[in-house]
Design a protein around this nucleic acid. Structure first.
Lengths: 219, 219
DNA sequence: CAACATATTCTTACAGTGTAAGGTGTCAAC
DNA sequence: GTTGACACCTTACACTGTAAGAATATGTTG
């Protein structure tokens, strides 16, 4: 009908899954997960909301593509690393991925990884445990347990980082001082500059535990 | 206008924050977090959607009340427990809380705990670390790191438990067998019956690490 | 008792959401 | 040309949270 719409769609690069995924990350990064809608996505793409549906059957499928894309950005463990060094590498790599998409990570953390690229990554990770000497069962269990720590850590860093202050009226300083002095004195040590140390503290604890478990499994 | 509405609102118990919170948990438990809306909540309460707004200024405030209520259900660490036993108790207690509200936990996991009851719980937890002999800084860091593991674990149990299959078309068995054999053979060991063992595996690893850290801090 | 005040609850309306159904313009193959 | 496939757009619907204000219920004062 209106000729400008045609011109618009001719002028710009045509839509594609890749371009849509990238634009989605941009919107989520700029406006936050809650503000991410098909219409705002379309606005950034220079098209109409429904045009996205020609490339993704639903918003949920698009979100899955975002998960896949984020997971695909995880570099595999270098082959010459031993098991512990490899797990350390994977942990930092996963954390870096989360911090690359801080506003998106809370979504990722809660979603099953059953897209092809996510499965490939999972497969490699579990394979590392098997290869190190864990039984099938122990490989599954220790890997999952390790994931608990990593995901919990990255979630905390991103959920706190990406979101503004809570909706509830914050407790005033005087009340904090009187009723929750431990929280107050812990506050500075929760600052962003400390996050990496906190992450490493627990990570090294995990790695020592894995070392012991591995020694026990091999004997 | 319509007289039945009056009769209805006379007949039932009057609205109150407590009744609304309870109904909210019921709706979330029965229909899931995504299906939880003010109108469905009102339906369960036998009132109109906007009536809720007299008791909570916004849905976000109501959600905060849910967080507060869930956290308030955490029993404090018994005073005669030593530090490690206390942390073990708190970990299981937290996990039990999450499993009590499985559909709600993914929301809780991502939200700051700055309501009064949540702060009281935080304050007690951090206090336990201080009392055990950690410095202010180490208390903050080791507590947070411990929380990473616990929250990651409970999130995984509830997010997998409370949600149905992913939206993406699942990868067919033949493909799994060929391309992701490690994931396939790990599958049975990720079954629900194994969750408690997995949780304990990582928990005991954490507790051993805390024991060592505490010994180092005291020396 | 009536009259007023306050606390609850309901009605209506609006801007926003995901997306079903079907239309329109462009281009390649015949 | 005509046809058909493809990419994109228009419209419409059922849903969301909630602002604004009307209506009712309850309590208080005369």
């Amino acid at each position: 009908m209106d000729q400008r719409t045609k011109i618009n769609s001719r002028k710009r690069e045509p839509l594609s899954p890749g371009r849509i995924v990238q634009a989605a990350f941009e919107v989520i990064g700029a406006e936050g997960l809650a503000e991410f809608s098909t219409r705002k996505l379309a606005q950034r793409l220079g098209c109409e909301a429904m045009s996205v549906y020609h490339h993704f059957p639903s918003k949920a499928h698009l979100m899955d593509a975002l998960v896949d894309s984020a997971v695909a950005s995880l570099r595999p463990i270098p082959p010459d690393f031993d098991f512990i060094a490899g797990q350390r590498f994977a942990a930092f790599e996963y954390r870096a991925m989360g911090l690359r998409f801080p506003a998106f990570f809370p979504f990722l953390s809660v979603h099953r990884m059953n897209t092809p690229k996510a499965l490939a990554w999972l497969n490699a990770m579990i394979g590392a445990y098997r290869k190190a000497g864990f039984s099938d069962r122990d490989a599954a269990h220790y890997f999952r347990q390790f994931g608990y720590y990593i995901i919990g850590a990255v979630l905390d860093e991103t959920a706190g980082y990406a979101r503004g202050p809570s909706t509830a009226a914050p407790v005033p300083f005087e009340v904090m001082k009187r009723d929750f002095p431990n929280v107050l004195s812990a506050g500075p040590h929760f600052a962003k500059g400390e996050w990496r140390r906190i992450f490493e503290l627990g990570l090294e604890m995990e790695l020592e535990g894995l070392t012991s478990a591995l020694a026990a499994a091999r004997s």
